[in-house]
Simulated assay, not measured.
Amino acid sequence: MKFTIAFSVACLLATALAAPPASQQEAQVLRFDSDVQPEGYNFAVETSDGKRHQEEGELKDVGTDHEALVVRGSYSYVGDDGQTYAITYLADKYGFQPEGAHLPRAVQ
């Protein structure tokens, strides 16, 4: 059940990232790869407007009380300023953990 919910959220996120704003021309999908297995998935999407998104998820501790989905991925896009922004992320039992050169970092 957790896997189904997490996969549905991942698909919605992929769709939202691939959809261009109404003010821009409609982008074309250049690449879409997907592989869904019982205990994991991965996908990659690339569009003509410079957006890219790839992600893989793996179900950990299957059948136990600690069953959880661990997701790793990255996405990039061209901002209104013409720069390409890239984010890598990990989502696990510690939450969503994005990293990117343009994102602020916690002071340690």
Rank of each mutant, 00 (worst) to 15 (best):
M1L: 13
K2E: 15
K2I: 14
K2S: 13
F3R: 02
T4L: 11
I5A: 12
A6I: 15
A6W: 02
A6R: 12
F7H: 13
V9D: 14
V9S: 04
A10T: 12
C11W: 03
C11E: 15
C11A: 10
L12C: 11
L13P: 02
A14Y: 03
A16G: 02
L17M: 14
P21K: 03
A22S: 15
S23A: 07
S23Y: 03
S23Q: 07
S23L: 05
Q25H: 08
Q25E: 15
Q25K: 06
V29W: 05
R31K: 07
F32Q: 08
D33V: 03
S34F: 06
S34T: 00
V36P: 06
Q37W: 05
P38F: 02
G40P: 10
Y41W: 08
Y41K: 00
N42I: 05
V45A: 04
V45S: 06
S48T: 07
D49S: 04
G50C: 11
K51F: 10
R52H: 13
H53G: 01
Q54C: 01
Q54S: 01
Q54H: 07
Q54A: 09
E58K: 05
E58Q: 00
K60R: 12
K60T: 10
K60P: 13
D61T: 09
V62L: 14
T64N: 03
H66D: 15
E67Y: 00
L69F: 03
V70D: 14
R72D: 12
G73M: 00
S74H: 12
Y75F: 13
Y77I: 01
V78H: 04
V78C: 09
G79M: 10
D80F: 01
G82D: 11
Q83N: 09
T84F: 05
Y85D: 13
Y85G: 08
A86Q: 14
I87P: 09
I87N: 11
I87F: 02
T88H: 09
L90C: 10
A91N: 13
K93C: 12
K93R: 14
G95T: 11
G95M: 10
G95Q: 11
Q97D: 15
Q97S: 09
P98I: 07
E99F: 01
E99M: 05
G100N: 05
R105W: 01
V107D: 15
Q108G: 12
